[in-house]
Design a binder for these strands. Structure first.
Lengths: 99, 99, 99, 99
DNA sequence: CCGTAATTAACAAAAC
DNA sequence: GTTTTGTTAATTACGG
């Protein structure tokens, strides 16, 4: 059982106190660190959405774009020949991949 | 169908043609920008997981930690509404919501 | 390595040999029995989803519904413990658990 | 907003009452139907586990067995030539698939 | 604004 | 017991 689980400790008058100090600041620190990173994550999501919107504005199909990216992500050979899938889709769209 | 589909015509002045008529580099750029941000997002997810693990190592209960963070994310009114709805359902079923 | 690997010997009286020495039908039988049950399981999942949808159509909040069911599944002591831990964390962070 | 959401309705003195009656029995019915199906689902999971155990007792490797089943499930051609994968694994195990 | 569909996170089960 | 994997639920994003 965890040492911070109040059901297992009874030597302290405050269940959020660990040996040598109050656990509340520690808890607060963990929570805030996580919240900070979560915010950054959301910001990145917003950025990504923005780029999809921009691509859409440039005439690309967002759904297809997502598929291309998903396939590239899953392709086991992506590190060997990372360009090939994009070229494939360029050809499928009638775009010269060499241009 | 995407407007970049060459079957829909290529003489139009719209997004079908980028400067110089080469859409592939534009597509490639969008894909790479998105992939870059997606990588950063994944890295943040990993960081968050790490912090939860660290908190667990410090004796905190991860599941409860997630709950508190979720409560903080919600605005108080919304949380109160959810709570009261839960109590309502519990009463309808004859459950003590505090068990 | 599986004991059905023929490289481990075939003259033994153990599970390697079924009646008549034909393991393939036995394997096939296991696979098919499992697949059959797995299908039934999926069907039940679909049924459950359907009921949630029906409840939603009757004005119930699905998320809350899931919560009540989860509470009923837990034994009361365990639920009470989770609740008190949550309150503890909330107090440490200066949150009113009832918002 | 849902008609059973207490925040949207004010014509009833009891938020769990819908037009023409008390909603509690309806709620209870939904909950019980779901719980019933969930129980059946768990029972099936137990059955499946049992069969894996039985297969193991017959000398089959459970992990490999799971893989065979997973692949069969994902195989898009499974309806056309459902037997082929099993035969493949029989051969890999040195078992005559025609026996 | 709502319902649907895709992604992502939480949970449960299994392997080590 | 812990770590990983597979399944299931919740969130989020897109289209109507």
């Amino acid at each position: 059982m965890s040492s911070r689980d109040p059901s297992s400790g009874s030597e302290s008058p405050d269940a959020l106190s660990s040996v040598g100090g109050n656990a509340a600041p520690v808890l607060r620190s963990f929570v805030e660190r996580i919240e900070r990173l979560a915010e950054e994550k959301q910001a990145l999501s917003a950025d990504i959405r923005e780029i999809f919107a921009e691509a859409k504005g440039n005439g690309f199909d967002v759904k297809t774009l997502r598929k291309v990216i998903a396939i590239r992500r899953l392709d086991p050979a992506e590190h060997a020949e990372q360009e090939s899938l994009l070229e494939l889709y360029c050809r499928a769209l009638g775009i010269d991949p060499l241009s």
